[in-house]
Design a protein around this nucleic acid. Sequence first.
DNA 1: CAATTTCCCATGATATACCATATACATGTT
DNA 2: AACATGTATATGGTATATCATGGGAAATTG
Lengths: 147, 147
Amino acid sequence: MDTISNKVDAKGRVSLPADYRAIVKDLSSEIVCYRSLSLPCIEGCLEETLDKLASDIETSTDFFSETQDNLTNLIFGDAKRFPFDSTGRILLSEKLLKHAQITTEAVFVGKGRKFQIWNPENWEKEEARIRAEALKNRPSLQPKEER
Amino acid sequence: MDTISNKVDAKGRVSLPADYRAIVKDLSSEIVCYRSLSLPCIEGCLEETLDKLASDIETSTDFFSETQDNLTNLIFGDAKRFPFDSTGRILLSEKLLKHAQITTEAVFVGKGRKFQIWNPENWEKEEARIRAEALKNRPSLQPKEER
DNA sequence: CAATTTCCCATGATATACCATATACATGTT
DNA sequence: AACATGTATATGGTATATCATGGGAAATTG
């Protein structure tokens, strides 16, 4: 999956890039979005992905566990279903847009089973950061003819 | 799923958010609410969820099941059915409202199989607390999210 | 019979579904 | 290679349906 930038209109509507939609659509007609815990971006995935995470938590802790309580609150309290309209758009909420500082342009970044939605400037910085990080951790990948 | 704030009128009536209702309604026309054991909020779920909890504990071989048994009894003693009116509202009792310190505004927080109802200010604090906690413990969650 | 509770209808606000246009992309043709 | 044509996507706007909420009528209770 690649990185695609789409416009966000005054109502907060964005087209989910066609490539993303194709993967999602026959499985279900809606996706689930929530604020990233550690980054200023929106995360999206299929509902089944969240369900799986939830049942993982349920089986690893008991009904009265405080950890479980916190996690389910965090995940399900923040996540929301976003159905598509007939042209393949979703209507993002104020809360999500604000968290990701998105106003008129949204960048979709594929992450395998999930994807992220960024403000263009923030994504640019984040990508640079990730690249720098990757190079630092894998010196062998660095071009040698540089010098 | 999702967190939604609705008004509580003078009679103690609140609309159950539409998204919540959709999941509940065809299963049964009423939900079950009770005071949270550990937090200043109301918890709600389907009756079948409580039934499942009870039978899970009956068949459990867990060493601590006696403690859980007691907790379950506490919940059952407190729980009460709340039917909807024709517009999808429930009438919360004085006891529940007082426990959650709710007067004019009620915040619904999704938790997957159940949900909580909070006083807005209390929820704000609680959410901040949970987020901070989750960030601290993030390393253990990370592997699951990554994939 | 008074007081409380339950039920139902009316309204305004909001979100959703639908339709129309514009843009980009790919395909095939001259 | 350039153009034209067709298809699929993206974007903008409007009508419609749904929901939250307030008020009041009917039913119930003490």
